[in-house]
Amino acid sequence: MQYALLAYSPPEDTDRASRPIPGGLAPLLDRPDVTGWARLHADESATTLRNDDGRMLLTDGPFIDSKEYLAGLILIEADNLDRALAIAAEMLQETRPGTAIEVRPILDGRFRGA
């Protein structure tokens, strides 16, 4: 089963586009159970589309107001949630303080990383 590991960063951590992936995390992203990953620009670069009773609303910024923002996602293959959590815990140890990783099963999709 595929799981998405959604990495959240504190709002003050906005310079990650100019720095490399943390050294201990890079080899973990190359593992065979990681099927894709992406780092995202800071939340202020987001544009959100909303369906408002059939009308499209376009707004700048993330879709929710939060103390953390979605910084990236990692797709993994794992036999079960326990294994997915173990992989996420291993990756979390290599991230910056304040980072959180949400683990969610994927219903379906075609994304495959390069």
Rank of each mutant, 00 (worst) to 15 (best):
residue 1 M to Q: 13
residue 4 A to G: 01
residue 4 A to N: 02
residue 5 L to S: 00
residue 6 L to C: 13
residue 10 P to V: 04
residue 12 E to V: 04
residue 13 D to C: 00
residue 13 D to S: 14
residue 14 T to Q: 01
residue 15 D to G: 10
residue 15 D to K: 04
residue 16 R to I: 13
residue 16 R to L: 09
residue 18 S to G: 08
residue 18 S to V: 07
residue 19 R to S: 10
residue 20 P to F: 05
residue 21 I to S: 08
residue 25 L to D: 02
residue 26 A to C: 04
residue 26 A to W: 06
residue 26 A to D: 09
residue 26 A to M: 14
residue 27 P to A: 01
residue 28 L to C: 06
residue 29 L to W: 02
residue 30 D to R: 02
residue 30 D to A: 07
residue 31 R to M: 10
residue 31 R to N: 01
residue 34 V to K: 04
residue 35 T to L: 07
residue 40 L to P: 01
residue 40 L to S: 08
residue 40 L to R: 02
residue 41 H to P: 15
residue 42 A to S: 15
residue 46 A to M: 10
residue 48 T to N: 09
residue 53 D to A: 11
residue 54 G to F: 15
residue 55 R to E: 03
residue 56 M to D: 06
residue 58 L to I: 14
residue 58 L to D: 08
residue 62 P to H: 13
residue 65 D to F: 12
residue 67 K to N: 03
residue 68 E to L: 07
residue 69 Y to Q: 12
residue 71 A to R: 14
residue 72 G to W: 00
residue 74 I to T: 13
residue 75 L to K: 06
residue 76 I to W: 01
residue 78 A to H: 05
residue 78 A to Q: 10
residue 80 N to D: 13
residue 81 L to N: 07
residue 86 A to F: 07
residue 87 I to R: 00
residue 90 E to W: 03
residue 90 E to N: 04
residue 90 E to I: 02
residue 90 E to G: 01
residue 91 M to R: 02
residue 93 Q to N: 01
residue 93 Q to E: 13
residue 95 T to Y: 03
residue 96 R to M: 13
residue 96 R to Q: 08
residue 96 R to W: 11
residue 97 P to D: 01
residue 99 T to L: 15
residue 103 V to A: 10
residue 104 R to M: 02
residue 105 P to D: 06
residue 106 I to V: 14
residue 107 L to G: 12
residue 107 L to H: 14
residue 108 D to S: 15
residue 108 D to H: 15
residue 109 G to H: 09
